[in-house]
Nucleic acid binder design. Structure first.
Lengths: 214, 214
DNA sequence: TAGATTGTTAATCGATTAACAATC
DNA sequence: TAGATTGTTAATCGATTAACAATC
């Protein structure tokens, strides 16, 4: 366990991108790829690619490069794509529904098991086969079913509260779309998707370019 | 212009978060804050906060700290929140509709001007007051209207193609939700929101914790 | 003035890149 | 074997943190 304990966040964040490019290569029927070729494709350095991959073991072969299919499979394994992941979505609004309807997740083992909402009029309905339940069923549902990840698509204050409840019920992985930081103990792992923040970064770039044009 | 030309991406990515915390302080009626207090709140170092803010000029005062309201306003100005940003959304699917319906953007000057889709049966409809047009109206629309940012909520291959078209029409800022990297010249600024990638990072953490439990 | 806290320079840390010996 | 390309160590670069003189 200790070996792969200290892999930096930067490396982990790059893995899905490798995975993506390798898939494209497979679809193109490419059998092998060198770090040099991959680096040109991905606009990274070959050094970085070799360094990154070697965090997990030597997947390549000197004089040959990397076998595309097996590297793809290895990275998939590292990312946990082979396992089934059970998700619930808190908040059955537009964003929550968009997540449940999106086709791209299930092919990587992500399965939405239920949605929860405060709005009674939504309860009982199904989105893409996923039933909307009232938030007061949350506790009983989570204690009976396996839930790996909770996606939060509710307003900030609610997200902070509900995430605490979910933590209390044993959930440790959170996909947070609320525009706030959650307030959870250290061992909770939160992946934030702050849409306004990313839009503001774009806005910064827009404004700056206007400055420069003056 | 040269002064503020070389601010690192890491700093820019942190600005929206400062902005968010300062807003909360304003709402709590807090008048002034020291880098030390803010650092405790945000779980950052006071050093980093002072360093970050000083990229844009001395907003603080020795022995006093920072005035919350004016710092908030300054960061807002830097992020370009004071300006109006005109957006179009390519793809009127679930995600595109969720973006247009979300209330949080307009209060920061982001206005959706139109949505575009291939599906004729959607065209003419409006989502939250934003009209869906056929994709073949894109060129004429963009040449007549001011468009700052294009949000792409369409499949990967389409996103690559359409973004090239949009670039040709003069658009330089892209909010990309497609699960691919765009292929645009250097001066295009792309902010990616790769939902599957972020979910895979969570999945990695889930798998690794299971490893450790064995 | 004394105390507090900034702005800024210097030190440290980590991540990226370069180089090259090992090896297929 | 010769050529190619990895795995890995060393050098560089950039970002974060610490320290402290400047100053409100």
């Amino acid at each position: 366990m200790a070996q792969q304990n200290q892999i930096s966040k930067a490396v982990i964040a790059r893995l899905p991108r490798y995975y993506r490019y390798l898939r494209v290569l497979i679809e193109q029927g490419v059998e092998r790829v060198s770090s040099e070729e991959l680096s040109r494709l991905m606009k990274a350095t070959a050094s970085q690619i070799r360094q990154d991959l070697n965090n997990f073991g030597g997947f390549g072969q000197q004089g040959y490069g990397y076998n595309v299919k097996s590297l793809y499979a290895e990275i998939g394994k590292i990312l946990g794509v082979e396992q089934v992941h059970d998700l619930i979505v808190i908040g059955a609004g537009n964003l929550g529904r968009a997540l449940v309807r999106y086709k791209g997740f299930s092919s990587h083992g992500f399965n939405f098991r239920a949605m929860f909402d405060l709005d009674e009029s939504l309860c009982g309905k199904s989105i893409n086969g996923v039933k909307i339940r009232h938030i007061n069923e949350l506790e009983s549902f989570v204690s009976k079913q396996k839930v790996d990840i909770a996606a939060l698509t509710i307003p900030s204050e609610d997200a902070i509260q509900v995430s605490k409840t979910l933590y209390g019920l044993g959930i440790r992985y959170f996909w947070n779309f609320a525009h706030t930081d959650l307030e959870l103990p250290e061992d909770a792992i939160v992946k934030d998707v702050h849409l306004l923040d990313s839009l503001l970064e774009l806005s910064f770039a827009v404004s700056r370019s206007k400055e420069n044009k003056r």
